[in-house]
Nucleic acid binder design. Sequence first.
DNA 1: CGCTTACTTGAACCTTGTCAAGTCATGTGG
DNA 2: CCACATGACTTGACAAGGTTCAAGTAAGCG
Lengths: 286, 286
Amino acid sequence: MPNAGRLPGRALLECLNCPSPSEALCARATPDTLHLLARYKSPNREVKAGEDIFVPGDPSRMICSLLSGWAFRYTLLEDGRRQILDFPLAGAVLRFHPSRGSSTTFGAQALTDCVVCAIPYAALIEASRQQPAIGLHLATLISQDFSLAVDHLTSVGRQSARERVAHLLLRLFVRYRVQWPDFRLEEMHLPLTHEHIADATGLTFIHVCRVLRSLRTDGIVEFRYHRLRILDPDKLADVAEVDPQLLLRRAAPGPFSRPDGIGGGLTARANSRGTIGGQDHQSAWA
Amino acid sequence: MPNAGRLPGRALLECLNCPSPSEALCARATPDTLHLLARYKSPNREVKAGEDIFVPGDPSRMICSLLSGWAFRYTLLEDGRRQILDFPLAGAVLRFHPSRGSSTTFGAQALTDCVVCAIPYAALIEASRQQPAIGLHLATLISQDFSLAVDHLTSVGRQSARERVAHLLLRLFVRYRVQWPDFRLEEMHLPLTHEHIADATGLTFIHVCRVLRSLRTDGIVEFRYHRLRILDPDKLADVAEVDPQLLLRRAAPGPFSRPDGIGGGLTARANSRGTIGGQDHQSAWA
DNA sequence: CGCTTACTTGAACCTTGTCAAGTCATGTGG
DNA sequence: CCACATGACTTGACAAGGTTCAAGTAAGCG
């Protein structure tokens, strides 16, 4: 029935070999559903670092996912001011745009070489009919995006420059830690310029530079030559005014990842002095 | 089969009489699905103006919708700084929180007396199994929230105080116009204080006051005694640096509202000089 | 090696925040 | 009805955080 009368084409092979992680939209699709999606999807597209994956105003209604690489999403004001929204990693849905007649206001650009995949909206409707969990899974993914946007908005709207930069770096680092828990180093590759950080935090790159210097001389974080090193996790969490445990829980979740009851309610903040990814509280990083 | 052997209880009556508009989550539910949801939902809850609907950190996993009234969602930093995220209207999903083990970081508070409804996550899963479109519909609603958050983030991160305030007022007004297109007046009731505007735009209420005075003396908008009057729509759109047509399309959409092709792509900006809700370009408001 | 892009620093400036005081509108109890 | 309290709004003077402008240095790349 699925893939009726056809050879397993390139598209299906792409789907079967898809590198995106288990939280991705089609990661839990049944074989039938995967066949369906593979039949309608566009060929995977490779995007070079620095190129746009899609631009603001693109009217296409394809659901677009990031299979591998680092990207960022952004909006532009008419006079060219740019706001970076987030830095999606592999597996993220970059765009889900169900409304006809309008277009996404944001764009997405590759920070490293990326591979993206696009599925027509109509195919998604059909797939979710076949496997209803897909609709809710998509809702969950977008809801996570919303949560992250909320954190980001709070930081940009209500924190000082120093707090914002610390917040952003901490979030990036925590997420990296969750995705590659094997590396125990307080260090990561971060393919950003000062200008990216500025556009994400709502500052000028000049001021970002000053803030980074101050954070470095205070022995908190170091960001040079595209490497981020966390020198003092506790101080960093303190400056950023976030509970790293809470960040972790948000970065890791997926609807099925943890039993109920962990860290519910407002008491979570109580224990926030654990080093980030150090030997203590290591369970949270595992 | 639905509601087997029971009288149509209070819950079902509530659902059948639900005042929320056609974009709401269960607005297109089949009778069977509505029965299912009604069977599991909590009784509708009335929340007085100024009271919290839920607070940040609330671990409940009920999907919470606003049936009537004005509310706002917000986050708090530990030292009490508040960021207002948005001002949901009737029909909005206030919270969808699928991940076990964490909790929504934001809260919601009533601006006017409100009625809210809560459905257990499990019931939603069951409902979407029964009627798969529900999952995608939820994804669509949350995706709209995300789009709005993106606009908001861009404004807060990259616009001046004057632009931010203008942007917020314009957005609130446009949305009001879409919901009550009958009133042709450039005027609306807006149950906000200066402090709400400040917390939404990332400013202090003192500076908001200054900006509002300046916008008033420039003959652009007037906001006093909880009434918002648009004095010069064109200038307002100009200061806010948004295309009101674009705002409209975003505020109105729902996946089925317009034929394909309207305003696709980057050309939308071309015509943005129409007065807001005036006699010309009236079709967009109808 | 020379070009380009990113990063860095200083000084002047300006938008916005802070502090302090005062006005207005509303509601309450005597 | 008035005295008083309260919360929201308003204004001014001043301080500060962040931007702008200008110049210079370092790193990456052909």
